[in-house]
Nucleic acid binder design. Structure first.
Length: 875
DNA sequence: TCTGTCACG
DNA sequence: ACGTACGTGACAGAA
C-alpha cells in the first residue's frame, strides 16, 4: 500500500487570503468571483502537488468560541466580513464538494483546533501531514512529520514551515511560537500580549528563557528596565495571551482520519461550477489535460466503399464537420455505429456513394444523431435527404436543460450523461489560428467515439426526458422542427445584391458628409466609432455633462446622447452617423458577404441555444433586419422571392405574449378583453388610469403599452420609469394600478416565482423547462434577475412553443396539399413565405388558420398578414 | 478576446 | 441600500 498523506486546510483563512490577494472580479451575472477563483487555484495546486490520500477543509463555526470565555474581546474589533466575500462562501463550499474534499466545522471551535486535533492523531499514527493556512499561528503545529504551509504573496505561493525552517527564521521551536504570541500578542486576533513587546524582544526573551513561564520564573535575573516593568505589570495578560494562542489539540471533533479519505475530484461537477462562474482559463487548461486521459480502446473498420451489410436497422450516424458552418464547411468523415458494426469513411466519398444515399433516404432505417439539422443540411448539399432520424442528442440535451447544450460539444454533453469515452474537439483540433483537422486514424477514431456515444446515450437521455414529462416536447416538437428548419435553411432566401450595393453607395456618400460635419464641429478628426475617443470629445473637449458611465469610461449610448440633444448640434449628427453606420456595416456590407453563389443567404437557426426556447439566427442573423426606422426598413427591399413573379408573404401573431399571459394567468378581465378582440393597450389604459374608452389619450395608450411590455419582462418600477421617462414613483403607481386591475396577472407572477423557488425551474405550456438556481440567492441582484426571469420565461417560452408547432403544422399542410409555397424565415412571432401568385389565395387563408390553431388557448390567437414583391412591401 | 453599441422580437 | 426591464447576434475598436 502506498504511503498515506494527510492535508488539512484552514478554509476561512484561505478564502480571506484569496479575496484580498485578487482584484474584485465579477462574472457576467454580477457574482463576485475573486475569492472563489483564488481558492480554486489553491485547491488545484494543493491537490496536484501534495497528492493527498486524506484531506479535510476545516471551517470556523460561529461567532463565539471557547476562547471568548477566557477573553471576551478575543478577535474583537475585527472588520465585518465584506459582503462581496461572504456571498462567495456558497460557491466555495459547492466547489469543495465537487472536489469531493471532506469539510468540517465544530461549534465553539476554530478551524485551527480541528486541524490541531487531527494533525495530532496523524502524528500518533506516524502519518505525514501538511497543514495549509494563511495564518502563521498554525506554524506551532510543525514537527518532523507535519509541515505547515503558509500563503506568502499572491495566492499560490506557499512558505513551508518545518521545525528547521522555524529555527532558521526565528531561532525558536514550533511550540515556542505560542510563547512568542503570548508575549507579543496578535493584533489581528486582538490578542493583547505584553504591551511594548514586539517580535524581536519576544524572540530574545524566549531564546534566553524558553517559555513564557520561563521568562517569569527568571524575572529576578533580569536587570531593571522599562521592559522588565512592563513584563511584571502584564504577567497575567501574557499568560492569557499564550492560552489564547494555543491551538487545542484535543477538540471533541466528530471526524477522524478514517472518515476523511480523499477520492479525487468529480471533474464533471467541478467543470459545471467553473462554467457557471466563467473560469475560462481553468476550463481551457483542464480540457487540455483531459485529452491526455486514456480512453478505452474502440474497434472499427475504415471503409472506402459502402456495402449493404454495413447498414443495420437502427444505427448511430455521425458526420464530422470541420466547423459549424455546415452549409459550406468541409465534411471530414462519416461514421456509423450499430449493434454489430462500426464503420467510418472519408466524408465526401461517403456522401457520394449511392448506397449510402439510399440508406440515408430510407425512412424505415432509423438513425441516431447529434444535430439532425446539420446532417440534413449536409445531405442536401449532395442532393439527398436525411430521413428516419430517430434521435438527436443535441436537442434532447437542450430540452432536458437549455443551459447545458449551448456552447458545449458532443464530448461534454456525453460526459454529462455519464459517457466519458469521447475526446473534446478542441483537444484534437486545437483552436484559434492553430486549428487544424485531425487526419487518418485520429480522425476516424474520434468519429467512431462520437457515434458510439450517440448510440449509447439514446436510451439514457430519452428515459430522462420521459421522467420529466418532456419526451413529447422533444420528440413531437423539436425533432420534427429540426427537419423543417433544415429545409428552410438549405432553401435559403434570395437577396438582391444590386439593391444592396446601390444603397451602399448612397450611404457611403452620406456617411462621409456627416463625418466631415462632425469633425468640423469637434474641431479635430477622430474616430466616431470609438466610444473612447467620442467620449473624450463630448465630455472633455466640448464639456457636455456625462450622465452615465460604463466600466471603461463615459457612456455614449443612444439613450445618453438623446438626453444631450439640444445642448450641442453635434449630438444629432452623431446619432445619425451611428444609425447609418450600423446599416452600412451590418446590413449592407455584412449581408453582402453572406450571399452565396446561388444569390441567396442561408442562415442557420440555432435550435439548442436560448434559455427560453426561442430560436436564434446566425450567419447572417435574419431575425434582426431593420424595420422600426424607415431608412433601415428599406434594407428589406433587397429580400425578394427566388422565382420571377412570386411574392413574399408575411404572417405575424398579434400580441402573442400578452395572449399567452392571459391564458396562463386566466385573469378574467384580460381573457375577456382578448375574447372580445378589444385593443389591449387601450383596455389597459382604461384600467390603469381609470378612464372610459373615449377618454384614453394617445399618451395614455403609449404608457399602457409600456406597462404591458414591462409586465411581460417581469416588471420593475425603475425599468418602467426609464422606458417612459417618468419618475420611479409614478412608474410604481402605474404598476400598482395594473396589478390591482388584473389580479389574475398578479397571482400568476407570484406563482411563477413560488414555483421556481419550490422546484428550481419554471415551465411553458409544452413543458419546456428553465432552471433558475439563482432564485434562492442571497444576492439581491441575482435573485431579482431570477425572479423576473421566472415571470418572463413561461410567457416568452410558451409563445416560442406555439410558433414552433405552427411551423410543423404548416410544413405538413404544404406537403400534403402539394403546394409550391416555401417557408423561408421565422422571426419569433412571424413566418415569412415565398408564394407563387396562383397559390396566394390559398396561402392567405391557410397560413393564418394554421397559425391561429396551432394550439387552442382560452383566448383566441390572432394573425395579421400581408404580401408584396419584396419583404419591405409585406406591410 | 472583451466591451460597447445597436439591430430585432 | 442595493441597481434592474426579457430574449438574441454582429460589428468596430481596444486590449
Amino acid at each position: 500500500m502506498s504511503k498515506q498523506k494527510v492535508v488539512l486546510v484552514d478554509g476561512n483563512s484561505l478564502a480571506y487570503r484569496a479575496f484580498f490577494a485578487l482584484p474584485l472580479l465579477t462574472n457576467e451575472q454580477g457574482i463576485h468571483t475573486n475569492a472563489t477563483y483564488g481558492f480554486t487555484m489553491m485547491l488545484q495546486k494543493i491537490v496536484e502537488e501534495e497528492q493527498p490520500t486524506h484531506m479535510l477543509i476545516a471551517w470556523d463555526a460561529g461567532k463565539t468560541t471557547f476562547r471568548h470565555a477566557t477573553f471576551s474581546e478575543y478577535k474583537g474589533g475585527r472588520q465585518k466580513t465584506p459582503p462581496e466575500l461572504s456571498e462567495q462562501f456558497t460557491y466555495i463550499r459547492q466547489l469543495v464538494e465537487a472536489y469531493q474534499i471532506p469539510q468540517y466545522e465544530l461549534d465553539q471551535y476554530e478551524a485551527d483546533d480541528i486541524i490541531g486535533t487531527l494533525s495530532k492523531q496523524a502524528e500518533a499514527q506516524g502519518i505525514e501531514t501538511v497543514v495549509i493556512s494563511g495564518d502563521k499561528d498554525l506554524t506551532q503545529l510543525a514537527s518532523s512529520l507535519t509541515t505547515v504551509q503558509i500563503t506568502r504573496k499572491g495566492i499560490t505561493d506557499l512558505e513551508h514551515y518545518t521545525p528547521e525552517h522555524i529555527q532558521e527564521k526565528y531561532g525558536l521551536t514550533p511550540l515556542q511560537i505560542i510563547d512568542m504570541k503570548g508575549l507579543m500578542g496578535d493584533a489581528s486576533d486582538n490578542i493583547p500580549g505584553v504591551p511594548g513587546v514586539g517580535e524581536k524582544t519576544a524572540i530574545k526573551l524566549l531564546t534566553a528563557y524558553e517559555t513564557v513561564e520561563g521568562v517569569y520564573a527568571h524575572m529576578d535575573d533580569m536587570k531593571a528596565s522599562k521592559m522588565k516593568e512592563k513584563l511584571v505589570a502584564n504577567e497575567e495578560l501574557a499568560h492569557i495571551s499564550k492560552q489564547l494562542a494555543t491551538i487545542e489539540r484535543d477538540a471533541p471533533i466528530a471526524v477522524n482520519l478514517d472518515s476523511i479519505p480523499y477520492p479525487g475530484p468529480d471533474m464533471e461537477k467541478v467543470h459545471t461550477i467553473w462554467q457557471q462562474l466563467q473560469f475560462k482559463t481553468l476550463l481551457e487548461k483542464s480540457a487540455f489535460q483531459s485529452d491526455t486521459k486514456e480512453l478505452a480502446e474502440v474497434s472499427y473498420e475504415v471503409v472506402t466503399e459502402w456495402k449493404s451489410e454495413h447498414f443495420e436497422q437502427d444505427m448511430a450516424l455521425h458526420v464530422e464537420l470541420y466547423d459549424d458552418h455546415y452549409h459550406t464547411t468541409d465534411i471530414l468523415a462519416v461514421g456509423i455505429v450499430g449493434e454489430k458494426g462500426q464503420y467510418v469513411m472519408e466524408g465526401n466519398a461517403a456522401f457520394s456513394d449511392p448506397l449510402f444515399k439510399a440508406w440515408l433516404e430510407d425512412e424505415t432505417k432509423s438513425k441516431r444523431c447529434y444535430d439532425v439539422k446539420a446532417f440534413q443540411a449536409v445531405a442536401k448539399r449532395f442532393g439527398c435527404e436525411l430521413k428516419g432520424a430517430s434521435f438527436d442528442l443535441l436537442l434532447a440535451a437542450y430540452i432536458s436543460d437549455p443551459s447545458m447544450s449551448s456552447s458545449q460539444d458532443l464530448a461534454s454533453l456525453a460526459r454529462h450523461f455519464g459517457h466519458g469515452e469521447v475526446d473534446d474537439d478542441e483537444a484534437l483540433y486545437g483552436k484559434g489560428a492553430k486549428k487544424k483537422a485531425p487526419e487518418g486514424d485520429v480522425l476516424f477514431e474520434h468519429v467512431i467515439r462520437k457515434a458510439t456515444a450517440v448510440w449509447k446515450l439514446k436510451d439514457v437521455v430519452e428515459s430522462k426526458l420521459k421522467e420529466t414529462e418532456q419526451y413529447d416536447l422533444y420528440h413531437n416538437l423539436e425533432l420534427p422542427l429540426a427537419s423543417v428548419l433544415g429545409e428552410m435553411e438549405s432553401f435559403g432566401v434570395r437577396v438582391d445584391r444590386e439593391t444592396l450595393k446601390k444603397m451602399g453607395v448612397e450611404l457611403r456618400g452620406r456617411l462621409e458628409q456627416i463625418e466631415k460635419r462632425i469633425h468640423e464641429m469637434a474641431g479635430e478628426d477622430f474616430n466616431i466609432n470609438s466610444p473612447k475617443q467620442l467620449g473624450v470629445i463630448l465630455f472633455e473637449k466640448l464639456g457636455l455633462p456625462a450622465i452615465k458611465k460604463t466600466k471603461t469610461g463615459y457612456s455614449t449610448a443612444a439613450d445618453v446622447l438623446e438626453k444631450l440633444q439640444g445642448q450641442h448640434e453635434i449630438i444629432s449628427e452623431i446619432l445619425l452617423y451611428r444609425q447609418l453606420g450600423k446599416l452600412q456595416s451590418t446590413y449592407i456590407e455584412g449581408l453582402l458577404k453572406e450571399i452565396h453563389e446561388d444569390g441567396k443567404v442561408h442562415t442557420r437557426y440555432q435550435q439548442a441555444l436560448t434559455s427560453t426556447g426561442r430560436l436564434s439566427s446566425i450567419n447572417p442573423n435574419l431575425q434582426n433586419i431593420p424595420i422600426r426606422i424607415e431608412e433601415g426598413r428599406k434594407i428589406r427591399q433587397a429580400f425578394v422571392p427566388s422565382e420571377d413573379g412570386w411574392v413574399l408573404f408575411a404572417a405575424d401573431y398579434s400580441q402573442i405574449e400578452l395572449r399567452v399571459m392571459a391564458h396562463m394567468s386566466q385573469d378574467e378581465k384580460l381573457v375577456r378583453a382578448f375574447q372580445e378582440d378589444r385593443d389591449i393597450h387601450t383596455q389597459t389604459a382604461m384600467d390603469v388610469f381609470g378612464v372610459k374608452a373615449e377618454e384614453v389619450t394617445s399618451n395614455m395608450r403609449r404608457a399602457a403599452k409600456a406597462v404591458n411590455f414591462g409586465i411581460i419582462y417581469g416588471i420593475s418600477d425603475y425599468g418602467l420609469s426609464q422606458s417612459l421617462s417618468i419618475t420611479r414613483k409614478e412608474a410604481a403607481t402605474f404598476i400598482d394600478n395594473y396589478l390591482t386591475s388584473f389580479p389574475g396577472v398578479k397571482e400568476f407572477m407570484d406563482n411563477a416565482i413560488a414555483e421556481a423557488k419550490k422546484h428550481g425551474f419554471v415551465t411553458t405550456i409544452m413543458n419546456r423547462r428553465r432552471y433558475l438556481p439563482e432564485i434562492t440567492s442571497s444576492n439581491f441582484n441575482l435573485r431579482g434577475f431570477a425572479e423576473r426571469t421566472a415571470m418572463n420565461t413561461p410567457i416568452q417560452g410558451s409563445a416560442a412553443d406555439i410558433i414552433k408547432k405552427a411551423m410543423i403544422d404548416m410544413d405538413r399542410e404544404i406537403e400534403e396539399r402539394g403546394l409550391k409555397t416555401k417557408m423561408l424565415l421565422q422571426v419569433h412571432d412571424e413566418l415569412i413565405f415565398e408564394v407563387p401568385v396562383d397559390e396566394l389565395e390559398t396561402i392567405e387563408k391557410l397560413v393564418p388558420h394554421v397559425m391561429e390553431h396551432a394550439v387552442e388557448l382560452s383566448v383566441p390567437l390572432k394573425v395579421d398578414f400581408a404580401h408584396g414583391k419584396t419583404w419591405y412591401e409585406t406591410k
